[in-house]
Amino acid sequence: MDHVGARLLDPAFIQKLDTLSLLSRKRLRGVQRGDRRSTASGRGMEFDDYRAYQLGDDYRYIDWNVVSRLDRLFVKMFAEEEDLDVSLMVDTSRSMAAGDPAKLLVAKQLAAAIGYIGLVNLDRVGVTAFASTVASRLDRLRGRGRARNLLEFLDGLASSGETDLEMAMRRHLATSPRRGLLILLSDLFDPRGYEQALLLSRRHRFQTFLIHILADDELVPAITGDLRLVDVETGRAVEVTVDAEALAAYASARDAFFNEIERFCFRHGIDYLRTATSVPVETLVLRWLRQGGLLQ
């Protein structure tokens, strides 16, 4: 991996990623043969089921042991191993520039790691950068050799624009007819709400994994006094006298916001992982994404 990839992923970390693969709770149909078991029965290596022989079936798949016991012809069916369609949606709105390190950088590193794992495992990996709409898009790549393209694309992303999750999701789904794994990396600071966007992905039968990235300062604001808080995306301002009581109220609103997201995701079968920018990406990938069921 050259210096472009090194900016996002450490070589040592990449070596660790080689041993991982994406885990889909659903069996999804791919386009080409791959390492992943498909819903289509076929010529894969993994036994799937038996069925009665029919005229024209390949004699090689007749299970003679069964024939000897039952005196009837049965053929073995194998699950087709196909590739997985992985869509990485990276929020590049202006709010993602916040944090130390920036939320966008964390999102890009996570996307790079997940995309790399997908490419290594012959999955088709696409990346969509969005703010109020799709800002840029990387068409589906396949194979380890395309990792450079993936990393270069992610490295070139910059924060701009206002968040509109629903619009971005509609645009993305319009150009992604195939179901697959959809990984959304965002801070979810959308005044219009995140619910419609996630419901759209569910409606299109995507297995959705939401990675909620927040800056430490957003979890516990380190500000006091009479302030005019200006939203970097919308320009809206709120005049607040920040004191202990105000911070406590903010914490309550924050927890309510998180609980609301968690309940929503649980209700609609969406995997959800919330993280702060202070958590190392390596820890996130190797520990929390594995525990979260995205990687194995």
Binding site: S95, A97, A98, K103, E218, D226, E233, V238
Partner: peptide, 21 residues
Amino acid sequence: RRNHPVSSVLLWQRSAPTLAA
């Protein structure tokens, strides 16, 4: 008041007691 940029005022707006503050 001093202007202070934040990534979002969403949570501040949801904090009704803060508004009262």
